[in-house]
Design a protein around this nucleic acid. Structure first.
Lengths: 206, 206
DNA sequence: TGCCAGACCAAGCGCTTGCTTGGTAGTGTA
DNA sequence: TACACTACCAAGCAAGCGCTTGGTCTGGCA
């Protein structure tokens, strides 16, 4: 890609990260962290993918862990915003629930796939203090889910305690990044419906 | 613990691993890999927990990765056997399905919790050749699941394609090791029923 | 009693790691 | 022209890593 072409595409990259020098580092780091894990990825790997020297990374980030944290924060912010919009736009509780599932699947197997995998698999690499910071943002995201699930329960749409259901769905959905193939025979919409079918109270489906 | 007490408990430890010198290393390694991840755990950490020098580890294992591989293989063998027995003992397809879920939850939040977490989170640390070896064993385990799910579908007990359902359940179940607390308000039996309720065809529950 | 094999120690090698340092090129502003 | 600022390079340091080496101790068997 030429420098001109690169500077023209200036808003969002593959995973909701800007095309600034900083953004390019985050984008490269997210891919590498996903491919090899955080610890197996060296700062030299990241620098090489960006096309700079390893020392130059520290002009943009104070430490390797700051890069990891920034990847996580960016992807949570991006996905929280998307989730909130999708829920606001959906007409009823059932539609809101479907929107949540669709949104989260989109995050995990679609545009923010790389960074989301990092969030799950490299969590333990963050220091406790940084974990706490990231969890704070994460809880906003989770609250959107819990509000809808609580409403769904009041309406008798679901049978299971919202906290428990949310956690089972988190697992089912996030695991899909290990197997789901967008080019495969199953469409995302089909997968959304399947997951929705698992979540919703049996009798409401008859 | 005295040496006498240790040698008396001679068969299985916390995670289905023997109480030989080799077994003690595997047991310590499983805990540490789970607590800190594979890469962040040094051979010195493992040796210290066992109470030997780091170099002495290499009298029992050729490399650090061999330790990881051995942890994975042992836990898969142990759980495959348990799964097979549980399925054989269950009377009908519905009972077999319930047994599968119960067994897997037991593996993940019960006795082999540590090693199972390692299996999920440190997978990428294995070389491709070792991944292939471990996958070979894993496929035996998965086949037990698929056989039951295929039968369940023929009987109209489930609605979803076995492959897809298995993967959604894998995620939902394995994620529970991040949140389920055996001392908490929810019993394992309740959790099993909840998961079973999600798997089984809606109309069959009415 | 002599011997051997398994289990372990003490020391350290060679390499990679995250990160620091001192300096340079290019750009915008006054 | 002078200055400031951002982005970057080239070189390398100190620490920590997986693993090796040569040797010691001990229990069991011939």
């Amino acid at each position: 890609m030429t420098a001109t072409a690169r500077s023209r595409r200036k808003t969002l990259q593959v995973n909701g990260i800007e095309d600034s020098p900083r953004g390019k580092v985050l984008s490269a780091a997210a891919s590498l962290f996903r491919e090899q894990g955080y610890e197996r990825t060296t700062v030299r790997d990241i620098a090489a993918r960006v096309g700079i020297q390893s020392g130059s990374l520290f002009h943009h980030f104070a430490s390797k862990e700051e890069i990891l944290k920034a990847v996580m924060i960016d992807v949570i912010r991006f996905n929280t915003e998307r989730l909130q919009h999708a829920v606001a736009a959906a007409p009823g509780t059932r539609a809101k629930l479907r929107a949540l599932i669709e949104c989260e699947l989109q995050s995990i197997i679609g545009d923010t796939r790389e960074a989301m995998a990092v969030l799950v698999y490299s969590w333990a690499a963050l220091s406790p203090a940084n974990q706490k910071d990231v969890l704070g943002l994460r809880s906003v995201y989770e609250q959107v889910w819990l509000d809808v699930l609580t409403a769904a329960r009041k309406e008798g749409l679901i049978d299971v305690e919202p906290f428990v259901l949310r956690r089972l769905l988190t697992g089912a959905i996030s695991w899909s990044n290990t197997w789901y193939d967008p080019q495969g025979p199953m469409s995302i919409a089909q997968l959304v419906d399947t997951v929705l079918g698992m979540a919703i109270r049996p009798s409401k489906e008859c």
